[in-house]
Write a protein that binds this DNA or RNA. Structure first.
Lengths: 140, 140
DNA sequence: TTCTATGCAAATATTTTGCAACTCT
DNA sequence: AGAGTTGCAAAATATTTGCATAGAA
């Protein structure tokens, strides 16, 4: 069962289907090369530039959200779902872990007069369990 | 009066001073090319790669925070001040506006068992007053 | 058939790196 | 003097674009 509504005017192609499928089964944002690699691994042929083009198009159509992660050497993409998720990112191994709830709920920023807020992005950073443990034991 | 403590072991050079001065007077995060352009405009000579190197070093030393903005085509840098600020970014003109207070205060994410949280980043996005007005009037 | 999407190559943009010359301490 | 910094050029990485062909409606 597809989680998305296909925007009218867009043709369905196997490349686009592949991208959607990867995004649907992802539980954390993925980079374009991530998605490209997964499609290849599934035995399908795509070009990285095509993946970029699809992601850009999907972002435009509101299907996908483009967001930088951590210190941002790459852009990450995720399906724009009905639920509202944020992530914690490990500063060491760059693992991405979903956070359950959103601290912005009910929060009204004081800028609202000067700014029409459409949404927000929250990212926590720190050490995941594994890296935390490793750092402690190696006393680094 | 300098807002920062110069890390020991780092030499003071006019390039580094220039970068610090720009960052001190900025009230929103700046990209490396932004900083480079401002220094040039002040009549000083620097190389962009030097600016990048200085910012990387400062980030390592904890003087500066590197953070991607909006959809992240570039990294932005800001002085790591004592106060804790977040920003709203206009999706149209990319203007960056500081937000007064932080919705995370007192918030304890449910992941804390599996993750040692060091900090967080929040970014609101939407339309700034000018772009909102312009979009309404041009009925675009 | 007609319009759009993709393959492919080549360009662009941002950031990083290597090394010799220079400049702080 | 000696270690750390910068100028400069060139490389590396991420992403975008142009155009002819292939594919969906």
């Amino acid at each position: 069962m597809p989680e998305i509504v296909w925007p009218e005017g867009l043709k369905k192609t196997k490349q686009r289907d592949a991208v959607v499928k990867i995004l649907e089964s992802a539980e954390a944002p993925l980079s374009a090369p991530d998605i490209y690699a997964q499609i290849e691994k599934d035995g399908q042929a795509v070009w990285l530039s095509t993946v970029y083009r699809i992601l850009e198009l999907f972002t435009e159509k509101g299907l996908v959200t483009k967001t930088p992660v951590l210190d941002g050497d790459m852009a990450y993409y995720e399906l724009r779902r009905h639920d509202h998720r944020h992530y914690a990112v490990c500063v060491d191994c760059h693992k991405i872990v979903p956070i359950q709830d959103c601290p912005m709920t009910g929060f009204e920023p004081k800028i609202s007069d000067d700014f029409r807020v459409l949404g927000h992005r929250i990212e926590m950073y720190g050490y995941c369990k594994d890296c935390d443990k490793r750092n402690k034991s190696s006393k680094e």
